[in-house]
Amino acid sequence: MSVTSQRLHAVRLIAGRELRSTLMGIGIYIVMAVSFLLSSYFINGYLYTIVHNGALAMPSPLMVPLFVAVFVGALYLGLLSSLAISRERDQGTLEVLFYGPVDSFSYVVGKFVEQMAVFGVFLLFDLVFFAIMALITNFGFNWQLIALLLISFFVAASVVAFGIFLSSLTRSSRASVILFVAIQVSFIAFFYLYQSLMKIPDKELSTTMIYVRQALDYMRRGIEWISPLDYLNRGAAAVASGGFTGFLIALIEAVIYGIILLAAAIFFFNRRGVRK
């Protein structure tokens, strides 16, 4: 049996065990319910507009609710992924796995595959939910929704890879969660700070503040490539604009980002080791 087939065998088993464990838990269903509630809130708002104004000027009204559902799912998976390695290291079960025919590649990829399978389940429920919503509301289930579902799968891969990467850096579950949340909050805080500064006209800013704003602009360009949720934003924007090239570029970017982070996760995982 070649090394590749040994690894794939381990990947399949690790992913299968984890998937079963996640699907048997209640967490995923709670998050799904929350995402559908949030989506319903938006759909309800559109229906309210139609009832009171008689019309809704949107080409695809289910786009935003679907984006919200996908965003919530991806964020949850990112958080789950940030625990992927550190939780098992905390519990000591990681060490037991590595007594056997498992290496860092098969373990990290197994975790990744499992998370993606969970997201696949998520998308399946999204598909059913939004198909039903389209029928009930008559908003229509068009190709843009399918494209958004498709690209969200690849973008979720980058979010999962980001979570696993963070998990490979930390020693405990708590540290992983704190790091994941802190990074996401920092990105969001930075985004709002940047947006606020950009709204202020140049003439109202001092020279120093203009330099600060310029520096923030450079930082924003960097963060766009680091923050996994920015890939989701770009993907959704590409779908909304309707251009196939933009869609393809967003998809390829997400895939490359995911591969780089997974490779980094394997590297740091090797350095950290499997012991508690």
């Binding site: 519990q91 000591g92 079960t93 060490e95 037991v96 007594y99 056997g100 025919p101 498992v102």
Partner: peptide, 13 residues
Amino acid sequence: RKRLGVMSEYQYT
């Protein structure tokens, strides 16, 4: 790895 059987002091299951 397949030819080894390893048991640690504490059982992590």
